[in-house]
Design a protein around this nucleic acid. Structure first.
Lengths: 130, 130, 130, 130
DNA sequence: GTGGTCTAGACCACA
DNA sequence: GTGGTCTAGACCACA
């Protein structure tokens, strides 16, 4: 379900967060879906339960998931909305990269064509009828 | 010449690197220009000399500057080329952000118009004859 | 009779306890009233019998109910008194919240008017002659 | 500076959070004040560095403090405002306690006089001229 | 010396 | 079997 790159400079717990957010965005996980338990997933990914716990706690805090002690952890109703509301942050992230490319002399057209390509590689959402 | 945000989450040494790279890209520093000495600049920016030393070492490593023992440190001949060759990294950085925006349902047109805006805020290079 | 919120952060067994205490305070259950059996109620609420057993045991311990082996579990004679004697705990619970509000600069009058509102939303006790 | 009750049911990391928030509200810590380092304070309170780290991370998240890697952690400019904006949560916390007291037959006047007492035990803020 | 991440493993509450 | 908290201690980046 998730892939962890142990040699990446991005922390493991953040990779986990990104991974699950992606699964929600893609539609692979919907509200009510149960996440793997801390123990089982930590074993499967060979990461420490504490590390996974930290990632899960952050997902809860972001309103992506909800923990029900003794039962498990589930994708929350508002998961998608909570994710989409962060899109603005992404846009501003683009800004600095684009500015730098401009300074490097990369033409605007080249950047745009690159972006169009990237845009179309994004997987369609399951059952997205829009 | 450089501004350091001591409370930014991006490390000081990285801010220094970015700052000098920017000065080169913008044309404020050209091959042969002498960089301030570790001692003087660290004092001016009130940062730790070790931190600055680390930044300078990285600039050397990237082929932006060259240290001439006993004389000082200078922008290298290939500084600009070395910088531009990294543009590819930037492009791939865009990729993940764009893909995520796509998943969030942000339209391609919105992204492009945003990028055009960002592009045009980039300062013109001195003597840029494009 | 009782409503369980399976997604509340307050544990199910505690919701059960609160629920029955409330029923006693409100007068819906009086000394001698029989409580539903563990088996039937756990089924009705679709909660684990162990969880309900734990709640019932706690109600016994607090002197709210008494189990009569072979017959069932009944509201005890002193249920109301035992409940009211806990009011002191509530009062002290108020204390820390009020102190913090004071530190936050909330005026005393604002707090009082809020409390008056909350007070009047409480349901009247059945047969309350005050 | 802080007192930890190791036998309290409220988690240690939460006690730490509450403690520092209180120090800010009381005026003992102001924007720019440096917090004790993770190592030193964890030793002083004889708690695990990880536990303290968790508390500190939460204070950062709440905008009470800011970590400057390599330098230390400092009370943020908006600490007070960020704290006060949570006052609403406190008010709603009062609600359930008051309602229950009402059911226990505690008179409104008794509750109010109790609250007035609690209110006045709150320490004056240092230099509070309001 | 700072803070941040991670592993290993215990122990508790809850269902 | 769930999730949550805590300890012990290593190791890294940064100043």
């Amino acid at each position: 379900m998730l892939k962890i790159d142990r040699y990446s400079s991005v922390p493991i717990y953040e990779q986990v967060i990104n991974g699950f957010e992606r699964l929600v965005l893609v539609g692979a996980l919907s509200p009510g879906s149960q996440l793997p338990s801390v123990r089982s997933l930590s074993q499967e990914l060979s990461i420490n339960p504490n590390t996974l716990q930290k990632a899960y706690a952050e997902l809860d805090r972001r309103g992506i998931s909800t923990a029900v002690p003794g039962k498990g952890r589930f994708i929350s109703e508002d998961a998608l909305n909570n994710l989409k509301s962060c899109a603005g942050d992404m846009l501003s992230e683009l800004s600095s990269a684009v500015e730098r490319l401009a300074l490097c002399g990369i033409g605007l057209n080249k950047i745009i064509s690159y972006i169009e390509a990237a845009y179309h590689t994004a997987p369609e959402k399951k059952g997205d009828t829009k």
